[in-house]
C-alpha cells in the first residue's frame, strides 16, 4: 500500500515536471505537446502548474489539521493531535511557498511584489492564522490543554477562511482573475471579466494541471504520514524513558 503511494508520487511528479517544462508556448498549438499562447502571460503561464497546487495544498493541510483537531476533541487520543500539528506544519510551509511564488510572479506580471490584491491578502491572512496557531501552541505546556485549545482555535479560524477565499475576492477590487475590476471605459467598478478558476484552460494544459494537483496532494500525504509517525515515535520513546 505504502509502496504504491511512493511509486505513484515519484512517477507523477517526474511526469508533471517533464510535461510542464518541456512543451513550448506557441501561438497555434499543433499537437498535445505544445501549449497555447496567452497574451500577457506567455511563458509565465506555466507557473499555474506549481503555484496553484501549493495554495491548494495549504488549504487542504489546514482543513486536515482542523479535522484531526475535532477528532482529538472527541476521542482525547493524543495521536490525533500529533496528526493535526504535522498537517499544520506542512501547511505553513506550503503557505510560505504559495505566498512567495505568487509574489515573484506578481512582480513580473503586474509590476510589483505585493499589491494587497484580495487573494494575495487572503493567503497572507492564512499565514497569520497558521502563525497564530503555532504561537498558541508554544504558549501552552500541558499537552492535553495544548491539544484542546489549538483544536478549538483551528475551528474558529477555519470559520473565517471561507470569507477570505470566496467572499473577499468578489467584493473587492483586485488583480487576480475573478475579482472586481475597474472598467477601462467608464471608470466604474464592475464584475470580473475572467472567471475565478479558468476552466477555459486548453485541454492539454488542463491535463497537466490536474496531474500536478494530484501529484502534489499525494506528496503531501506521504510527507504528512512520515511527519506524524516521527512525532509518535518521539512520544513513545519519551514515555518509555520515563517509565524505566
Amino acid at each position: 500500500m505504502k509502496s504504491i503511494l511512493r511509486i505513484t508520487v515519484f512517477v507523477l511528479i517526474t511526469l508533471v515536471l517533464i510535461l510542464s517544462i518541456v512543451p513550448p508556448i506557441v501561438e497555434t498549438p499543433k499537437n498535445f505537446f505544445e501549449f497555447p499562447l496567452i497574451p500577457g502571460l506567455e511563458d509565465k503561464a506555466k507557473i499555474i502548474f506549481f503555484h496553484v497546487p501549493t495554495a491548494w495544498l495549504t488549504v487542504i493541510a489546514y482543513l486536515i489539521a482542523m479535522l484531526y483537531g475535532i477528532r482529538f476533541l472527541k476521542t482525547k487520543d493524543i495521536y490525533n493531535d500529533m496528526k493535526s500539528v504535522s498537517s499544520a506544519a506542512l501547511g505553513i510551509v506550503f503557505c510560505f511557498l504559495a505566498t512567495l511564488t505568487g509574489s515573484v510572479w506578481a512582480k513580473f506580471t503586474w509590476g510589483s511584489f505585493w499589491h494587497w490584491d484580495p487573494r494575495e491578502t487572503s493567503i497572507f491572512i492564512l499565514l497569520l492564522i497558521y502563525g497564530a496557531y503555532f504561537a498558541l501552541r508554544s504558549a501552552l505546556d500541558n499537552e492535553e490543554k495544548r491539544a484542546r485549545l489549538s483544536a478549538i482555535y483551528s475551528i474558529l479560524a477555519f470559520l473565517t477562511t471561507p470569507f477570505f477565499i470566496f467572499i473577499m475576492p468578489r467584493l473587492m477590487i483586485g488583480l487576480h482573475p475573478g475579482a472586481l475590476e475597474i472598467d477601462p471605459t467608464t471608470g466604474q467598478v464592475k464584475a470580473s471579466s475572467n472567471p475565478v478558476i479558468k476552466f477555459e484552460m486548453a485541454e492539454n494544459m488542463r491535463v497537466v494541471f490536474f496531474l500536478s494537483l494530484t501529484a502534489f496532494t499525494l506528496l503531501f500525504f506521504w510527507l504528512w504520514n512520515l511527519s506524524y509517525r516521527v512525532l509518535r515515535l518521539k512520544y513513545k520513546l519519551q514515555t518509555e524513558m520515563q517509565e524505566s
Binding site: R6, V9, F10, I13, T14, L17, I18, I21, V22, W222, L223, L226, R229, V230, L233
Partner: peptide
C-alpha cells in the same frame, strides 16, 4: 529539465531514506 529532475530525484530519495529509517 535535467537540473530540475536531478533536484527532484535527490529530494525524493532523501525522503525515501527517512521513511526507511523511521
Amino acid at each position: 529539465l535535467i537540473i530540475v529532475l536531478i533536484v527532484w530525484f535527490g529530494i525524493y530519495f532523501f525522503i525515501y531514506g527517512l521513511d526507511k529509517k523511521v
